[in-house]
Structure formats: structure tokens, C-alpha cells
Amino acid sequence: MRPQLISTITCPNCGLEKEEEMPTTACQFFYECDNCKKVLKPKEGDCCVFCSYGTVACPPIQNNEDCC
């Protein structure tokens, strides 16, 4: 099964929701909100911002693999 590559990130600071394409070759550790400019980092125990703030987990997690 192919992983979904589009996830909607929700900024916990201002609530902005934005659809983003997830990278398939690396984890994304930082994400800057377009609205409030807050730099998001993964929550403790998560490997990337998509696993913490996205509607879909990153591709390696979807495939039951270790993340970066």
C-alpha cells in the first residue's frame, strides 16, 4: 500500500490549517506557520511535525517503519 503524501498541519499557536506534501526521503523536524510565524517542532515521542500536528502521519510511520 502506498502512503498518503498530503497532510493538513494545524498550528497549535494560531489554529491555521494548511495542506502540505510530506517529504519521502527525510523527516521534517521544523515547520514555520505561514500565519503567526511560530516554528513548530515535533512533540516528545514523535519523529516529525507531521506526526505531531498533521492529519496524516509521515510515510515511514504509515508503512510501519522506523522514522528518521
Rank of each mutant, 00 (worst) to 15 (best):
V39D: 04
E44P: 03
K38R: 13
T25Q: 10
E44M: 02
E20D: 07
E21H: 06
Q28H: 00
P23R: 08
I9W: 09
C27M: 12
K18F: 03
D34S: 14
C48L: 03
K38Y: 12
C47L: 01
Q62P: 01
V49A: 01
M1I: 11
P42T: 06
E20I: 07
N13V: 09
D66K: 14
E65M: 05
L40D: 03
N64Q: 11
E32Q: 15
P23L: 08
E19A: 13
E17Y: 09
Q28G: 04
T24S: 11
K43Q: 04
D66E: 15
E32W: 00
L40K: 09
I9C: 05
Q4H: 13
E44C: 00
E32T: 15
Q4T: 12
K38T: 15
S7L: 10
P3Y: 08
R2L: 13
L16V: 11
N13I: 03
C36P: 11
C36H: 09
G54P: 03
C27G: 13
T10H: 06
P60Y: 02
V39Y: 00
P12H: 10
D46F: 09
G54Q: 02
G45H: 00
T10L: 06
P60I: 02
E65Y: 05
C11P: 11
L16M: 14
E32H: 10
E21R: 13
E19G: 08
N63S: 14
R2Y: 14
C48I: 02
F50V: 02
K38N: 15
A26K: 13
V49P: 01
M1V: 13
F29Q: 14
P60N: 04
T8K: 12
T55D: 09
T55C: 08
A26C: 08
E32M: 12
G54T: 01
P12T: 11
V49T: 02
N13A: 04
G15K: 07
C14P: 06
G54I: 02
S52A: 02
N13D: 11
Y53V: 00
C14A: 04
K41D: 11
T25I: 13
E20R: 10
E17C: 12
L16A: 10
L5P: 10
C48V: 02
I6V: 14
E65N: 03
E44H: 10
P60A: 07
R2G: 11
E44G: 01
C58A: 07
I6L: 12
T10F: 06
P12S: 13
Q62K: 05
I9A: 02
T24P: 03
P23E: 06
C68I: 01
T25D: 14
E21D: 03
S52I: 07
Q62A: 01
I61A: 05
D34F: 00
G54K: 00
C51A: 02
F29G: 11
P59D: 03
G15M: 07
N35R: 15
V39C: 08
A26M: 15
L5H: 09
M1E: 12
K41Y: 12
E20A: 10
S7F: 06
T8A: 08
